[in-house]
Each structure stands twice: as structure tokens, then as C-alpha cells.
Simulated scan of single mutants.
Amino acid sequence: MTQEQPADRHPLTQPVIRLCNDAADVVEQYGETYRDTQAAQLIRAEAGRLTADEATVVVVGEKKRGKSSLINALVGAANLMPVEVDIATSVHVLVRHAPHLRAAALVTGADEPMPIEPADIHRYVAMDPATGAPYRDDVTSVEVGLPSPMLAEGSRSSTRPASAASSPGTHRSPSRPSAWPTRCCSSYTAAPS
């Protein structure tokens, strides 16, 4: 079945999506571990994002340079992300539009995100200021949903520290299912509800 290509989409969008899905099929068919199955799911998810009606903006900055404060200001939620003087974010955080405030953490080895209390987000995303280690080293990412007019518009942005941009593998993100080493990393994603 051939899908109509919207006029504003690049003519190679559909062929790239088909190639991604074919690659996911191969990874899933010939993979030998749970991690291979996760990789196939992530490839399909990325292919699906090619047709999503949302924009992505990436904000890169060094540790403790105000990325979380910027996210809080943009979504109109002053206390959403931890911004204390001695607190830094340690995992990839997605912030999306949702009808009600909600949060979930993706934990290493889990198939589905685990619901968490929004008031406890800091316990899942932050680093211990005394040790510099994540409070939870089993958390690979956190997704937060909240009713925000800005988020309802369908924009998406991601913030990462400069160290993550220049040193691949030094941060966690949804495309990396395992608990790889982390340096301060937060991201902000907005998608239509």
C-alpha cells in the first residue's frame, strides 16, 4: 500500500521510513538479545517521528548552565525540572503536552515506563551533589506530560550538555536503552496531545 506524500514532505521521506522499518525487521529477526529487540523498537519509533507533526529544537550547553531553567520557563512550570544551585540533571528528559500532569521513568530492563509522582521527578533525573552520581543509576530517561499551551503547538526540543554533543556515548537518551555513563543531560520535547 502506497501512502500519499504530503506536499511539504521531502520526496525521500517514505523511502527512508521503509528502509528504517526494513532495518528494524533485520535487527529483530537476527538479534539474539533483549537489547536487539529494544533496538528494533527504537528504529521503528525514529522512523515514525519522520511523519510526526512536531518540530525539534536541540539546546546544547555545559553542566549547570540553565538548560532546565530554560525548559521550566518555556513550558510555564517554574518547579518542573530541578534547578537548585547544587543539582544537575543526569538523564534525558522528555516533556510533552498532556491533559494532566504526569511523569514516568524508563528503567533499565523494563519494557514499559514506570509511572512516578511528578513531585518526585528530581529523584529520577538529578545527580547527587555530594557524589556527582545519579540518584537512580537504573533510570535511562524520564517523560513528563503537562498541560502547557506552548507544548500543545507541537514543537519539540532537546537539550544536551556540550560534553554529550562532542563525546558520543557520554549521556543517556531514549535511543540508548542501557544505563550508559551520564554527564548532565536534560531534554525537552513537546508533541501534540
Results as ranks from 00 to 15, higher is better:
77 A>S: 14
129 P>K: 03
14 Q>E: 11
47 A>M: 09
128 D>H: 06
121 I>D: 00
25 D>E: 14
55 A>E: 11
145 G>S: 06
1 M>R: 06
108 T>W: 04
169 G>L: 06
109 G>V: 15
100 H>W: 05
172 R>M: 02
142 V>C: 07
36 D>P: 01
93 V>C: 11
134 P>Q: 03
38 Q>K: 09
72 N>K: 06
56 T>H: 06
120 D>Y: 05
100 H>G: 01
59 V>N: 04
132 G>N: 06
157 S>M: 13
111 D>I: 13
3 Q>N: 13
6 P>H: 11
127 M>L: 13
97 H>Y: 14
147 P>T: 05
113 P>R: 08
172 R>L: 06
45 A>D: 10
70 L>C: 04
140 T>Y: 01
37 T>S: 11
23 A>H: 05
179 A>W: 01
1 M>E: 08
58 V>W: 04
139 V>W: 00
185 C>G: 01
35 R>C: 03
185 C>Y: 00
108 T>S: 03
144 V>Y: 00
48 G>K: 12
15 P>W: 08
113 P>T: 12
138 D>T: 11
167 S>K: 08
116 I>D: 00
127 M>P: 00
114 M>H: 05
162 A>L: 13
160 R>L: 15
192 P>L: 11
83 V>A: 06
29 Q>G: 07
148 S>D: 13
59 V>F: 09
193 S>E: 14
72 N>I: 04
2 T>D: 06
180 W>Q: 14
123 R>V: 03
193 S>V: 03
105 A>W: 00
126 A>V: 07
158 S>C: 10
59 V>A: 07
79 N>Y: 06
174 P>W: 02
9 R>D: 10
96 R>D: 15
118 P>K: 01
38 Q>V: 10
18 R>K: 14
142 V>N: 01
1 M>F: 10
102 R>W: 09
158 S>H: 02
50 L>G: 06
87 I>E: 10
136 R>Y: 09
63 K>R: 09
44 R>K: 15
54 E>S: 12
183 R>S: 04
176 R>F: 01
107 V>Y: 07
83 V>I: 15
192 P>H: 07
183 R>A: 09
79 N>F: 08
24 A>Y: 02
189 T>E: 04
186 S>L: 15
19 L>N: 07
166 S>V: 09
191 A>Q: 03
45 A>Q: 13
45 A>K: 13
128 D>L: 11
143 E>H: 03
65 R>P: 00
7 A>S: 14
91 V>H: 00
132 G>A: 10
173 S>Y: 02
112 E>A: 14
189 T>W: 01
71 I>M: 10
193 S>H: 05
28 E>Y: 06
170 T>K: 02
68 S>F: 02
111 D>A: 14
79 N>A: 12
122 H>P: 02
66 G>P: 01
91 V>W: 01
120 D>A: 12
98 A>P: 02
101 L>I: 02
76 G>E: 15
8 D>T: 07
31 G>N: 02
64 K>M: 07
25 D>W: 08
180 W>S: 09
88 A>G: 05
54 E>T: 09
48 G>Y: 11
171 H>G: 03
131 T>S: 14
78 A>H: 08
74 L>P: 00
24 A>C: 10
170 T>I: 03
121 I>N: 00
28 E>V: 03
155 S>W: 09
